[in-house]
Design a protein around this nucleic acid. Structure first.
Ligand code: MN
Ligand code: MN
Ligand code: ZN
Ligand code: ZN
Lengths: 142, 142
DNA sequence: AGAAAATATTAGAATTGTTCTAATATTTCA
DNA sequence: TGAAATATTAGAACAATTCTAATATTTTCT
């Protein structure tokens, strides 16, 4: 078995930094999540990916892991669909296209969208974050 | 019992226009939804309001009605929270503040937010709608 | 109006995504 | 290495929503 020790140790560091033990399951999920660039996954989705990659991990652990990673800032949640939660490996400020037809998310860099002014927030509240979701659907064939 | 026959007939018209029979339940829900200005409700929420207004309607009918009204354009859905669906009586183009702490939505008029340019959509797709959600939370007391 | 057809409502069961429980396993560290 | 801490897991529980199929209401047609 050949290891990419570079990426492997990055994953390890990431977990340690976060105060999470680098267990077999967490490392494997880390690799799936972070070794192939920005991605958006649901729990079921990641669980399936894990299974097809030969990783033995329970759905409960997938949920635990996604939440722990979110809590420590390795992931963020994207709310676009009320029947499923999406987790995003891109935790920088950005927005999304959402292709409702196939439940697919595409990043929009923060600087690609300019929100001018915001009206004042409801009394006694502060802005946590601004989410822009551009809902798109397959264009009708010509 | 006193009737506001003006509003009553507006409700009736609205249902007929949509091709939905003006049943007792639908009319009652219409009144709850549309007679007190823009509002954002969940199904449970509306069901509870109905009960406390003395309207006998099942939760299944509340769901049916919310979906039917959405289908014919009397309501729109707002996705802000993956554990509950919100329906909005304001079907004009607008955005939202979402107070996560209490699950409360506040309208932002479309013209209060200016989204400059949009990047081009993913290949083969068209924009359906742009949703801006400004997530806010109660500011810490001074 | 009365009968038949169309549509709506409902209780309760089913489904689905997610969370919880508590028993077992792994990891850490002195 | 052994005790303490933490993690994993199967399966039960949960909560929002949808489905089913029996009953009721509304509309249409004579
Ligand atoms: Mn959490
Ligand atoms: Mn659900
Ligand atoms: Zn993203
Ligand atoms: Zn609104």
């Amino acid at each position: 078995m050949v290891h990419d020790n570079r990426a492997f140790s990055e994953v390890l560091d990431r977990l340690r930094e976060a105060g999470l033990r680098p267990t077999r399951q967490r490392m494997a999920l880390c690799k799936l999540l972070f070794e192939k660039g920005d991605c958006h996954v649901s729990a079921e989705n990641l669980h399936a990916e894990a299974k097809s990659a030969g990783i033995k991990v329970s759905l409960a652990t997938v949920y635990n892991t996604l939440h722990q990673f979110t809590d420590v800032g390795l992931l963020r949640q994207v709310v676009v669909d009320n029947s499923r939660s999406y987790f995003d490996t891109n935790v920088t400020d950005h927005h999304h296209f959402f292709v409702e037809a196939d439940g697919h998310l595409v990043d929009i860099p923060a600087e690609a969208i300019d929100i001018g002014k915001l009206p004042k927030t409801p009394p006694g509240t502060n802005v946590d974050r601004v989410d822009v979701i551009v809902r798109v659907s397959p264009s009708r064939r010509k």
